[in-house]
């Protein structure tokens, strides 16, 4: 199996804060889209910063296309397209001027693709970045990231602030990107409906720990939420049958790994399909 990105036991602590990354681990197979999900402050941005070497890690390994990331390894950065949750570019530049800059920095800059795509997404070429709306600057950042022919896209909340029409166009660009089976995407997002559409895998992170990595289809079609009455819940084998649970009023919601198996065992308990948001809630707000 070819992996575009491998993270092993990534750790980071900050001296004056509780916040940390604690042995975060996951792998992205080549040709897939990995959604990265977690509550605010869970460590998504920190993980991404550690991958890209904008912060130093205290421990663990990060390999992109099998190579370890370091300041000296500039060739691997030719193949990585990045979008941060920020303006990203100098405010005084226009998209056109930005392309002049980027064409001299990236070996494989594709100016035709840049011009065609900025046109398709209605990004004005001669307006200064500081005069662009947030949605526009995010679109611009995504186009810039795609325009230097990368093999891996790393996106930190790149679609938040975009309206649904534009988001769909962007998601299509991402699917077009992974039409090449050597291309992969790591995208952190609060907009889990986007991930439910196009992600192949989802990694959940909570309080600096990676708690679950699973195929999206497995999560959506096999996982489930058992809605238990108090007496029913007592009869469950907590170790075997459920992953986590939380109480909501008189019922207990339990996260179940396999709906069909669970249903066979406990036919009388209602079991629902689950969304990524609900899985996250059950992993984050768990009582057990």
């Amino acid at each position: 199996m070819n992996y575009s990105l491998e993270i092993e036991n990534l750790s980071k602590t900050y001296p004056h804060s509780d916040f940390r990354l604690d042995r975060v681990s996951f792998k992205i197979p080549a040709g897939t889209i990995m959604g990265f999900v977690g509550e605010n402050g869970a460590g998504k941005t920190t993980t991404i910063s550690a991958i890209l070497n904008t912060i130093q890690k205290d421990g663990g390994k990060v390999k992109v296309f099998g190579q370890e990331m370091s300041d000296n390894n500039i060739d691997v950065r030719e193949d990585i397209g990045v979008v941060f949750d920020a303006v990203n570019f100098s405010p005084e530049l226009t998209p056109k001027k930005l392309s002049n800059v980027m064409s001299r920095i990236y070996k494989n800059w594709n100016q035709d693709y840049f011009l065609t795509t900025t046109n398709k997404l209605d990004i004005p070429l001669n307006r200064k970045v500081k005069q662009l709306s947030r949605g526009m600057t995010m679109k611009l950042a995504i186009v810039v990231a795609l325009s230097h022919s990368p093999k891996l896209l790393i996106l930190d909340e790149a679609t938040s602030g975009l309206d649904p029409v534009v988001r769909e166009e962007i998601l299509d660009l991402f699917l077009e990107f992974v039409e090449n089976e050597n291309h992969s995407i790591l995208m952190s997002s609060h907009i889990t409906t986007d991930l439910e559409k196009i992600a192949d895998y989802i990694t959940f992170i909570h309080k600096g720990k990676s708690i679950l990595t699973e195929k999206k289809d497995t999560l959506i079609y096999e996982y489930g939420i058992a809605r238990c009455k108090a007496e029913q819940f007592i009869n469950l084998d907590k170790e075997e049958d459920i992953l986590s649970y939380r109480k909501r009023g008189h019922q207990v919601d339990a996260l179940v790994k396999n709906k069909t198996v669970f249903e066979k065992k406990y036919g009388d308990i209602i079991i629902d399909n689950v969304t990524i948001d609900e899985i996250m809630l059950l992993l984050v707000k768990r009582e057990g």
Partner: peptide, 19 residues
């Protein structure tokens, strides 16, 4: 300052250039 607030200074680190 403009580089800092737009986070261009962070983005620069991800470019194929040494620090």
């Amino acid at each position: 300052q403009a580089d800092e607030s737009s986070k261009w200074s962070k983005f620069e680190i991800t470019l194929p250039v040494k620090r």
